[in-house]
Amino acid sequence: MPPRGADAHPRGPVRACAHAALTSERTFARRFRAVTGTTPAAWVARMRLAHAQRLLESSDLAIEEVAREAGFGEPAVLRQHFARTLGTSPRAYRERFRAA
């Protein structure tokens, strides 16, 4: 069972995965990076961002709800990830890519 707050911080799932793989967190992270080319935390953030993108494209959920549903918790964190990774805001992304 993952530790409390595992969804709130990418390190929680790393701990759970390392435990399931019968290895240390450090070894798991090193092997994960060797296979995927990225860190577990970056991978989790990218998956959350992709989920948020799908929600913005296909739902009428408010930005606050999208942030929570995608695992970012707060809209400000979602906005930071959008700005840093995609160079836009969630609202602008929705306006541009919303399914007709």
Rank of each mutant, 00 (worst) to 15 (best):
G12M: 04
P10D: 09
A21N: 02
H9D: 12
D7S: 13
P2R: 14
A16I: 02
V66L: 06
R84D: 14
V44Y: 01
A100T: 11
G37K: 11
E69A: 15
L49P: 01
H9C: 06
V14C: 09
A50D: 13
G12V: 06
A29V: 02
V77P: 00
G87V: 07
G12F: 01
A29G: 10
R54Y: 09
V44S: 04
F72M: 05
R54I: 05
E69Y: 12
A62S: 15
G5S: 10
A16N: 07
Q53V: 13
H19I: 06
T38W: 02
E69R: 15
P2Q: 13
A45K: 10
F28N: 01
R98W: 04
R98L: 09
T88S: 08
A34H: 08
V66S: 05
A100V: 12
V44D: 02
F72N: 05
A99S: 11
W43Y: 14
R11D: 07
L86P: 00
G37Y: 04
A16L: 09
F32K: 07
P3D: 14
L86Y: 03
E95T: 10
A6E: 00
A41F: 02
G12R: 05
V14S: 07
F28D: 00
R79S: 14
P90Y: 08
A20W: 11
A18E: 04
L55Y: 03
M47D: 00
M1V: 14
E25G: 05
D7P: 01
A21K: 02
R11M: 10
P75V: 11
F82K: 07
E64P: 01
R15W: 03
R91S: 12
R96N: 05
L78C: 08
A62V: 09
A99R: 15
D60I: 06
E57N: 06
R54P: 01
P10Q: 10
A21G: 00
P40D: 07
G37H: 08
P3T: 13
P90G: 11
V77R: 15
G71V: 07
G71C: 09
F32Q: 11
A34P: 00
A21M: 05
L78R: 13
A100Q: 08
H9P: 00
E69K: 14
A45T: 15
H9A: 12
E64I: 09
L56C: 05
R98C: 04
P2H: 14
E95K: 14
P13L: 15
P2A: 15
A8H: 09
G12E: 03
L56D: 02
F32T: 07
T23P: 00
R94S: 07
P13D: 10
